[in-house]
Nucleic acid binder design. Structure first.
Lengths: 189, 189
DNA sequence: TCTACCATGTAATCTGTTACATGATTGC
DNA sequence: GCAATCATGTAACAGATTACATGGTAGA
């Protein structure tokens, strides 16, 4: 359902077709959302059937024809309801790398450092990309601008943590070259 | 597939049954993972069929019998392969609230502040909970401990950002009581 | 008595990903 | 000629969520 509202939100700015919506989401919300054509086209069709959007086919000379969608009054209503509704669950960091990190004690410490280094490089690149894009948002609406700043802040926090973690892991591994880990304690059930 | 490896990892510590695995994941990895019985029981059965885990049924006097799973050598091998494999995609902040935040310009500014306040309270509570739990991890293995620290850091970053955002939104709304937002600029395609 | 917790499971549904199919244009 | 980009779609699969069904024990 969340994709539905993202689309309705984007259609507030301008009419769009499926391909453009995917591009837009990836370049603008890329750090918190990703979409596939396998989702986008079926959902647009469904939203049209529900009367939330309407569609006109636009023939183009030098490109394949496209289906332009626009938001209907009914779509605006539903969007407004969602916008004002109570927030749902808290953010969950569903990061496969962090899950893996949890279990690094069961594997080779050098390999762990190696994987951590690769991650650091990746996040560093992402941070650079986000910083580059900051000026693009500086003159836009306040919410979008603030969000782009959050992306940078979170990236910095993540990087600092990874560099700190790297040091700790390296220095702890140094003397004994391997430390036996103890059993994890149970949570409060 | 990721749940499979989380389970194999937990079984390195001790033998567990489905109900306990769910509890464990929620109290220990809760800030980055959530599970349902609808996933856990079928996947345990499947892993048993694949020979990654083995099971014994344990009858109990004053509680329903439980199925204790343990990891097999084959399971250890597969887990080790996963642990050393290259990391996959970068973290994505799939947070419904942040998506909603992006579109707050299309709604009522007061309601936006209201929702933001509720969020701040929620994250604040979560931060308190995580800080409370920090000592539990202090003497455990280094990776698990570091991760618990990351959770706190990310929470703090998020809170600081939200408080800063709150101020900016409130002060911008004050003079004109509503500012017309301009169209979002296109990303680089 | 009622709630919470222990414990296992299935079915239906929804969401997300990958791969495939098609075909034109633009730029190197 | 080849890669990239524009543009729409389907099928198969994988993953996650919700609701339901069952039934025992402990404690307020």
């Amino acid at each position: 359902m969340i994709l539905k509202y993202a689309i309705l939100g984007l259609l507030h700015y301008r009419n769009m077709h499926g391909y453009r919506i995917k591009n837009h989401i990836e370049s603008n919300f890329g750090y918190m959302w990703s979409v596939n054509y396998g989702q986008i086209y079926p959902i647009l069709k469904k939203m049209q059937q529900e009367g939330l959007v309407s569609m006109v086919e636009v023939l183009q000379d030098n490109a394949p024809s496209k289906k332009l969608y626009s938001i209907t009054p009914k779509g605006r209503e539903e969007f407004a309801r969602w916008l004002a509704s109570e927030p749902e669950k808290l953010m969950i960091l569903r990061d496969p790398f962090l899950l893996r990190f949890t279990f690094f004690g069961f594997g080779d410490a050098d390999r762990a450092l190696d994987l951590l280094d690769k991650r650091i490089e990746l996040v560093d690149q992402e941070l650079a990309r986000r910083k580059e894009n900051l000026p693009r948002w500086r003159n836009e609406n306040i919410y979008v601008r603030l969000l782009s700043e959050l992306g940078v802040s979170l990236n910095i926090t993540m990087l600092e943590w990874m560099r700190h973690a790297r040091e700790e892991i390296a220095s702890e591994g140094a003397p004994t070259r391997r430390k036996k880990i103890t059993a994890v304690r149970r949570g409060r059930h």
